[in-house]
Design a protein around this nucleic acid. Structure first.
Ligand code: MN
Ligand code: MN
Ligand code: MN
Ligand code: MN
Lengths: 216, 216
DNA sequence: AATGAAATTTAGACTTGTCTAAATATATTA
DNA sequence: TAATATATTTAGACAAGTCTAAATTTCATT
């Protein structure tokens, strides 16, 4: 249907579109680890296929058809990640690279059966919502820990940074999905925070707090 | 590591090597659905990488390194097929195309964990042996039903033809892996055979008998 | 409004894997 | 053994996806 490269471009445009109406060539080049000139070439092809709205120099957005494909790729990515963690016992910091390959396995019947086999999970191991077979999913309204005040708190439901280093750090601190945390203290000097969890007390940097998402 | 195309060539050379010491360009072209000239190009690349022994005009064979890669691809293919049938409830005639894609997922850790998850199956849904993580597997010594005589029989343990049409036909006749069959009659005119199974009696053509493998 | 910087596109090239058509080598068979 | 048929390789081309370097457009600043 679509090539692996096309699918990756559509997915990247989708992710970058979350915080903007239009996505630039350079943003895509950075995310996809390619050169801007390569991006321009591909944008022409995707526009030709009517998967994106592209006006030279003006950035791109997905068409309805393009968004449908992008969401389907994301559905596959997250379901495979869930499978790897829940069925094959991988850690949440180990699955992304494998899912980057698995998301391009074409069969929708396969992914729908995998979904059923795992009893229709709603969130992937990183707390991201899994679109259902119609592409529908709820957008959790989450806040970074860094945005809340003393004695406020909530349940960890997601992360902004999906890097191995960040996920491993959180794991070590037991700051994992589902854990309840409360802000006990905010250090004025560097905005680091002292958190109370069910088990213990930990101090995290502003950087860490910024990327840790909770539901109030 | 190796490209998808390279992996498919190595796998095809492996399969064709079962019945011969050397594999020809045209044999590969036929199996891979390409032109002989394309095959020649790829053989040069694989020889350059020392994955095959190639002398122009004289056919090819796998080196030890090439065979190792080929067996690993086959291990992945068969484990994924087993997964699709045993865990996701696909029929044995539905899984080959999906496995053709899944076999190229690179992680060996993934496949080893999948193997463990399924409790180390020894045969795929078509009765083919699954190599273990060291590439080792037992070669069943099977015979086609067409080669045995009246009142002889055995247990169905494999098929030579993996086509959808053939597998669906066998399924409909309940001639599936594990079933015990005995030859009740051989029709002289066209060499078709009457088989007794546990449940009933069926007549199959020579063509069907030729592709159905049993252990005595 | 003019100028310089930054972003983007174009031009031309390269790699992988494929193709057709032509050339060459091997096998067959008379 | 010579002619013919078949198998294989070579030559030249093409599509996809990428790159570097150069040209162009847009943006920011004066
Ligand atoms: Mn991921
Ligand atoms: Mn994820
Ligand atoms: Mn198969
Ligand atoms: Mn099989």
């Amino acid at each position: 249907m679509n090539t692996l490269a096309e699918e990756n471009y559509l997915k990247s445009i989708y992710h970058l579109s979350v915080n903007a109406t239009s996505v630039s060539t350079n943003q895509l080049a950075a995310l996809l680890n390619t050169k801007a000139s390569s991006v321009t070439d591909m944008l022409k092809k995707l526009a030709e296929k009517e998967l994106i709205n592209y006006t030279p120099y003006q950035g791109v957005s997905l068409t309805a058809a393009g968004e449908k494909i992008a969401v389907n790729i994301i559905r596959k990515h997250r379901l495979w990640e869930y499978f790897l963690v829940e069925k094959l016992d991988f850690k949440w910091d180990q699955v992304h690279e494998m899912a980057e390959e698995l998301e391009h396995i074409s069969s929708n019947e396969l992914i729908d059966r995998l979904d059923k086999f795992m009893e229709y999970p709603k969130f992937d191991p990183h707390g991201d919502p899994i679109p259902d077979c119609n592409g529908l999913f709820k957008i959790h309204n989450l806040k970074p820990v860094s945005s809340i005040g003393i004695n406020e708190g909530g349940v960890i439901c997601g992360v902004r940074d999906h890097s191995k280093a960040y996920l491993q750090y959180l794991e070590k601190q037991s700051l994992t999905i589902g854990k309840k945390v409360t802000v006990a203290e905010i250090i004025e000097f560097d905005h680091s925070m002292v958190l109370h969890t069910e088990d213990n007390t930990i101090q995290i940097s502003r950087e860490v707090a910024n990327n840790l998402l909770i539901a109030l």
